[in-house]
Design a protein around this nucleic acid. Structure first.
Length: 273
DNA sequence: TATCAGGGCCTAG
DNA sequence: CTAGGCCCTGAT
């Protein structure tokens, strides 16, 4: 079926924005997204018109929120001050990026893996976990494995996890798996808690520090007041903002601004050297 | 071949 | 509070 999307929306940029590691691009601009056991194939037909593989109900109940379409990013871009030239440029190039509302459990594991890894390396680790512990689903286009649930990952020993190139993160993943499957850390409960509560609770998991916790808050719980500072953002803050973090002033749009800059930094690595 | 850094975190001092 | 160490990969 077809859906109309009038706000900023660019599948290629979303896929390359470094927040989702399982999106796949096929020929002819067809993209596949997966969250939990829901899979979406989506393709742009013409301006603001997209062909999607799911029902209108699934679109309205899941994917609409997944893509954060209940918020106007055009309005967000309009808030950028004229003096903030770097962000203006970044937001122009990054126009179309969305902050995805992904599964919290999946984000916990994924961003624990992300530390001290490159994006391609993160992707291959995540795929390895899916292939070995997830469920196989066959669609019209491919065979694909779901991200394993905490219960599916529980039996994996630390030694076993290390076989998937997880290195020193293996015990972190084990800790996260057990704390979450035993509800010592209740991910569901966090949906209704304050930003600070979510941020602090997630840090109870070993291997989750400020940066990883911020990423989970932003990419799973949609806490756009939070702007993760990673090595790239750090470089930009030093070089372009004289060491002063530019995000807090954007309040509930800080996380979106951060993502424009992250994307811009990634695609202009040379200029940061 | 050797070195370096990657969407950091933890521990020791 | 800061300095090192850490598993492993891909880039140079």
């Amino acid at each position: 079926m077809l859906v109309t999307i009038t706000d900023d929306f660019d599948l290629k940029k979303i896929a390359a924005s470094g927040q989702c590691f399982r999106v796949k691009e096929f020929e002819d601009g067809l993209f596949r997204f997966i969250t939990g056991n829901h899979i979406l194939y989506i393709k742009k037909c013409e301006e603001q018109l997209y062909e999607i593989s799911c029902s209108s109900t699934e679109w309205e109940e899941i994917w609409f929120y997944y893509f954060h379409l209940d918020r106007s990013y055009e309005e967000v871009r309009g808030r950028i001050g004229v003096r903030d030239k770097y962000l203006r440029k970044a937001s122009e190039e990054g126009r179309g990026i969305r902050i995805l509302k992904q599964d919290p459990w999946e984000m916990v594991i994924t961003f624990i893996i992300s530390q001290q890894k490159t994006i391609p390396s993160i992707k291959s680790c995540v795929e390895a976990l899916c292939l070995n512990y997830g469920d196989k689903i066959t669609t019209a286009y491919e065979e694909i494995y779901t991200f394993p649930t905490a219960e599916q990952l529980c039996p994996a020993t630390i030694e076993e996890l290390r076989e998937y190139k997880l290195g020193y993160r293996a015990p972190y993943i084990s800790d996260a798996t057990h704390k979450i499957s035993s509800s010592k850390v209740d991910l569901q409960d966090l949906y209704t808690r304050s930003d600070k509560k979510v941020f602090e609770t997630l840090k109870q998991i070993s291997g989750v520090g400020d940066k990883v916790s911020n990423c989970i808050c932003l990419f799973a719980y949609g806490r756009t007041r939070l702007a993760p500072v990673d090595t790239w953002i750090k470089k930009v803050i030093e070089k372009e903002y004289k060491g002063k973090n530019p995000f807090p002033r954007y309040k509930d749009a800080a996380g979106i601004m951060q993502q424009y800059i992250f994307y811009y930094a990634l695609t202009h690595k040379k200029e940061l050297a």
